[in-house]
Design a protein around this nucleic acid. Sequence first.
DNA 1: TAGAATCTTCAGAAGATACTGAAAGGATCA
DNA 2: TGATCCTTTCAGTATCTTCTGAAGATTCTA
Lengths: 181, 181
Amino acid sequence: MPETGFNGADNLFIRRWGEMAVSWGISRTMAEIHALLYLNTCPLCTDDVMDRLAVSRGSASVNLRELVNWGLIVRVHRRGDRKEYFEAEHDVWQMFETIMRERRRREIQPIVETIQRCLTMIDQERRGLRGKARAEADIHQKRFADILEFCGLMTTMFDLVNSAGRVGLKPLGKMLARLAK
Amino acid sequence: MPETGFNGADNLFIRRWGEMAVSWGISRTMAEIHALLYLNTCPLCTDDVMDRLAVSRGSASVNLRELVNWGLIVRVHRRGDRKEYFEAEHDVWQMFETIMRERRRREIQPIVETIQRCLTMIDQERRGLRGKARAEADIHQKRFADILEFCGLMTTMFDLVNSAGRVGLKPLGKMLARLAK
DNA sequence: TAGAATCTTCAGAAGATACTGAAAGGATCA
DNA sequence: TGATCCTTTCAGTATCTTCTGAAGATTCTA
């Protein structure tokens, strides 16, 4: 393993990052590898990850690939070295944008599509109803519409944050502070 | 079970809401119960939930309590009825604020505290270092500081969204649309 | 206070998820 | 071409999570 200047702070951070990941639906090992690469100044290879986090080759391989799929780390080749190295995105803002884009695609999009289908379904079902049943269906329709509107707004908000983020953290911070007043 | 006007759309939504929950670190049953109560116009009791979602009494009890702890549903008592009923928050905006507040407390706060500790630790460790090791420590320090700044900004943003949310979805939507240009 | 209705708890079971380690696959070198 | 180095795959295993169902606690009624 190359000199990586690991210390107590790094260990603490890596452990906590992994613990937190579980409550966000991400596997502990994957998050630990991500934290390890985020802190590291130079790319690491599979063996480095195995040694450092005490995981098997299989686990390291699978989790590294998954991180590459998410776009949070990239493969790095070195001349005269057959090993593959991995390097993390170090720009926190870019990291956030990547995570948001992926989660939107994988988790928000499916629910949005489902709600749209629900709205279509309920609209058809509603036609045959009268009186109380009709009123109930109207309320359900509104519930669906509310969530859908909310999802749309969230999407807008994250787009805004991402575009503002490109300018840098500082300007956005100032802008938000001004708005919050 | 009281008349609840369930239909295909509701079933579809409840199922999908439960599926998505898993990728957000929430148990499927808990999310399904939440979806069930969110859609329902009248409060439901434990037996209603058991019948509707085909879960055991124990599971219904535990998950309902957890939802109450999160503040997403409330207990409702009815005169002359010993059963306890449960009703969900129906305002999507309020729901979002509740979820964000809870997740911040349970998941963001711990990582923020850890990073602050990391910064203190690395600052102490750094004193004894010179040359390359010192430079490396400086970079690590910056990495920690970046995440911390990012967390602070996210917090500000959600506060803003929440306060703007109280005005209603529409005004915020317009405001964001204007900013996004 | 006995008895009925309801809720909570929890040990054991079931199910889901993630990891391991070895074998197979692929690339490069001599 | 064979040897070497490295990566990927996957069946079996370990671990973690969640559920079940019944026993026990609690609350209310008569």
